[in-house]
Design a protein around this nucleic acid. Structure first.
Length: 824
DNA sequence: TAAGAGGGTGTCTAGACAGCATGTC
DNA sequence: CTAGACACCCTCTTA
């Protein structure tokens, strides 16, 4: 079937596809067309990765738009949203407009309503429904990418409920679900009332095999000799083999999947020896440039190690990397510059990064709940293997599992090579999932009674596949009790069917996209403040005294570290607001409660919306001590060290809280990484999450009675300190565009303490503090609103520069070079 | 004498969505 | 209860 023979698409699209090289539709695509995908029919396409699933979706969306409709493409990851957007934008020349909406990126809210195709994550779609986005009921086509993720216990229920809601709002909605090959695609199709297209067909052949001893045995019975010398590394040998086998004039790249971050890093280091000896001079130059770019992203050990590996043509990839790191690696791997990537499963589910050869080194992974190593799911291994074979570059792809014995080889064949992927199972009937979705469903008007709620839930995959009718109802009732007890819903038991309504605060929680349990925890913590405040009024100096005393141990701990500069706090409890807590406590009987940033950071860190940091050996003692030293700062009850099982979790949250406090105290990123055993990606993730939760906390505190107005101010300040990563006194400066935590500190040390100072200060001092960077300084002066930002003929004041240099860690980022030059 | 081999012990373990308002060094 | 890689420390061996 030729694309140009398809009817129902915008004029020129078929021809454009042929110009792209799609002369003939792939068999699964043709099957999708036969099933009516361009005629508005719903469809489940369960086909392997890279076999043209996206085109099926495009055919559905474009034909829907051509009929005057509007399409939504749901992705599981933010990174995929931008990838898909870029892909779909090639249809803009045919008059089809594209927009994206994710948590960190929105192509303009107003505009979104006018877009023909919208790309968004499932959580974002859920949030848009909760907030009543007006265009939701204009949708005529929804595509759900990687729909097998409904199996995920954390995020699957969101996708499931979101699809159910979209279909309820819009009964005629064409639903196209793209899935990996799973055991029960037919059940998904039944749920969505859709046609099923199932196929193992791939445009590029995939050979899956197991390596043991001197050869890879493939599933088609063929064998490839890859002898491994005694003492030689099996993985290294296979990577070398792929690189030495030229196709298209170049050796093949490899993707190695391992089971931990540490393994990914050490594997990349080792494989660097293999790749380094096979680089051209040009490769070497470009890799050196890339390594520099990587070092520029963050000055942590992780970043440095990554850059070192990349210089050798090898890289690692895991969630501890900053997102900039990740995309640099992904792009360079796709451009064939990096020859080998050692990755945790991040890469198996993420953006498209195909390789000639995929090596699944570890097939077991630690599982905390189980308390030991568990074999990976068949589906997961298949997804990894599916990354083998680069369209247009490789004649075939190879996926190789590693065995260290003949027995293991047989086991791997049985378990993965021959095995069919597990069936997908809905995880909706679990309390955490229902807690948030029951509230949202009631709050956004999808159900007004218990019966209505249950009948709505009947439209989910869970209902389609369960044989235990009562379970969902039972968990729903438990959840309703919880929501009622916390004042999020009201129940009217008088009528025939129990009436349900969200309270004001329930609506707010739903719209903020908070887990109700997070909201309850936050409210509880903030309310304690009000209580304590009343108590503290009896001893007026109590609050302030505790605050100062509590701050000392932290300063001491930092001072022990020779490399770290402790900045003294100029004033206590001074805020930019005229009626700050200091002023308030002076003329009021209500002493302001001891709300500290640590207290707030700890509060949001112990909500279920924050992912826990792991307590390492020794951490228990360390944080138990912190717990006693800073007891006065914690909001809400402190569980007993000896009696309460929650104490462990509480300490883990304290560790996270301390990390956040360090960040807000301008501790360097590399220092934090070292102190908490995390990567730059983890730090940014934690800061980001806490920022989001504090913003929600601020809204909650404002919306609810009985929370002191001062608390709102404190929450906002704690949040802003996280956002900029600075101490209180730098908040004003860091708010100026182009001024981050480091520049703000340098300016402050040079005597420029505020935005106003920036407008009035001696330009020589400003320039000196910014290490003689004229263009940067001019931009900053302009952004601060200075009348005449020009720095023509101004010489940097070297004393300002000296002060600034002393105040910052040596970071070797070229800025240091500039200031050294200024002295000569 | 020092480097290195070999063995026992202890430690640690994947991932990443949401709001809101605009831009680090 | 179920694992495995690695760092670390100690001891013994060997050039």
């Amino acid at each position: 079937m030729e694309p140009s023979s398809l009817s129902g698409l915008p004029a020129g699209v078929g021809e454009a596809l042929e110009a792209e090289g799609v002369a003939e539709l792939y068999p699964p695509q043709e099957a999708a067309v036969d099933a009516g995908v361009v005629d508005g029919e719903s469809l489940v396409a369960a086909v392997p990765t890279a076999s043209g699933k996206t085109l099926i979706a495009e055919l559905a969306m474009l034909s829907s738009v051509e009929r005057g409709g509007k399409a939504l493409y749901i992705v599981p990851l933010r990174a995929l949203a931008s990838e898909k957007k870029a892909e779909f934008e090639r249809w803009e020349e045919f008059g089809v407009t594209v927009g994206v909406s994710t948590g960190n990126y929105d192509s303009d809210g107003e505009w979104l309503a006018s877009r023909d195709i919208i790309v968004a994550t499932s959580e974002k779609v859920d949030s848009l429904i909760r907030n009543g986005a007006p265009w939701i009921d204009d949708l005529t086509c929804v595509v759900s990418d990687e729909v097998h993720l409904v199996d995920d216990s954390h995020r699957g229920p969101t996708l499931e409920v979101t699809l159910a809601k979209l279909r309820k709002v819009n009964p005629g909605l064409q639903t196209v679900a793209l899935s990996a090959t799973v055991g029960n695609a037919d059940v998904i199709a039944e749920w969505l009332n859709a046609e099923l297209v199932e196929s193992d067909w791939r445009p590029i052949e995939l050979h899956t095999g197991v390596h043991f001893g001197n050869a890879i045995n493939f599933d088609d019975g063929s064998q490839r000799e890859v002898p491994v010398e005694r003492g030689e590394d099996q993985t290294a040998r296979l990577v070398a083999d792929a690189l030495d086998t030229e196709e298209d004039g170049q050796g093949g790249s490899s993707l190695v999947f391992v089971n931990s971050r540490r393994n990914a890093e050490s594997s990349a280091r080792k494989l660097g020896e293999v790749t380094a000896s096979r680089l051209t001079g040009d490769d070497r130059d470009r890799l050196r440039e890339l390594a520099e770019e990587i070092r520029g992203v963050s000055d942590t050990d992780t970043s440095e190690d990554l850059a070192d590996a990349v210089e050798q043509g090898s890289a690692f990839h895991h969630a501890g990397l900053a997102s900039e790191h990740r995309s640099l690696i992904e792009d360079a791997f796709r451009d064939r510059l990096i020859k080998c990537v050692s990755a945790t499963p991040t890469l198996a589910a993420g953006v498209n990064t195909p390789a000639r050869r995929v090596i699944v080194r570890d097939w077991r992974r630690y599982d905390g709940e189980f308390g030991g190593m568990q074999p990976l799911d068949v589906l997961e291994v298949h997804q990894m293997c599916g990354r083998a074979g680069r369209p247009g570059l490789d004649p075939y792809g190879e996926a190789v599992l590693l065995a260290n014995s003949a027995d293991t080889r047989e086991e791997l064949f049985e378990r993965y090579v021959w095995a069919e992927a597990e069936p997908v199972r809905s995880k909706l009937a679990a309390e955490p999932a229902l807690r948030t979705h029951v509230l949202a469903t009631v709050a956004s008007g999808f159900a007004a009674t218990r019966d209505g709620l249950l009948s709505f839930l009947d439209n989910t995959l869970y209902a389609t596949q369960t044989d235990d009718e009562g379970r969902l109802a039972a968990v729903t009732d438990t959840v309703l009790d919880y929501l009622e007890a916390n004042g999020f819903v009201e129940r009217d038991r008088d009528g025939g069917s129990e009436g349900l309504a969200a309270t004001g605060i329930g609506h707010t929680v739903s719209r903020l996209y908070l887990d109700p349990m997070s909201a309850a925890e936050i409210l509880d913590g903030l309310r304690t403040v009000a209580d304590d405040g009343a108590g503290a009024a009896a001893s007026p100096d109590g609050a302030d005294g505790e605050f100062v005393a509590a701050d000392d141990p932290a300063a001491d701990a930092d001072a022990e570290d020779p490399g770290f500069t402790t900045y003294t706090r100029a004033g206590e409890a001074e805020t930019d607001d005229a009626d700050g807590p200091a002023a308030e406590s002076a003329d009021s009987d209500d002493t302001s409660p001891p709300v500290t940033p640590l207290g707030l950071y700890h509060l949001v860190s112990r909500t279920p919306d924050t992912y826990e940091l792991y307590l390492k050996s020794g951490d228990r003692e360390e944080y138990t001590e912190v717990c006693y030293e800073r007891e006065a700062e914690f909001l809400g009850d402190v569980p007993s060290e000896y009696e309460d099982v929650r104490f462990e979790d509480w300490l883990a949250a304290l560790k996270t809280g301390r990390l956040l406090e360090d960040w807000a105290n301008e501790v360097d990123e590399d220092r934090i990484a070292e102190r908490y055993g995390v990567g730059p990606g983890d730090i940014r993730g934690k800061v980001d999450t806490a920022e989001w939760l504090l913003r929600a906390a601020e809204t909650l505190a404002r919306d609810v009675d009985g929370i002191d107005g001062d608390v709102v101010v404190q929450v906002r300040e704690a949040r802003k300190r996280l956002e900029y990563g600075v101490r209180e006194e730098l908040l004003d400066l860091a708010g100026v565009r182009n001024v981050g935590r480091k520049r703000a500190r340098r300016l402050y040390e040079a005597g420029i303490e505020s935005r106003a100072d920036l407008r009035e200060a001696d330009k020589a001092v400003v320039l000196g503090a910014l290490r003689g960077r004229e263009r940067t300084a001019e931009r900053i002066l302009e952004n601060a609103g200075r009348e005449d930002p020009s720095l023509d003929g101004v010489d940097p004041d070297s004393s300002a520069s000296a002060a600034a240099t002393a105040g910052a860690d040596a970071d070797g980022d070229g800025d240091g070079q500039a200031s050294l030059g200024d002295f000569g």
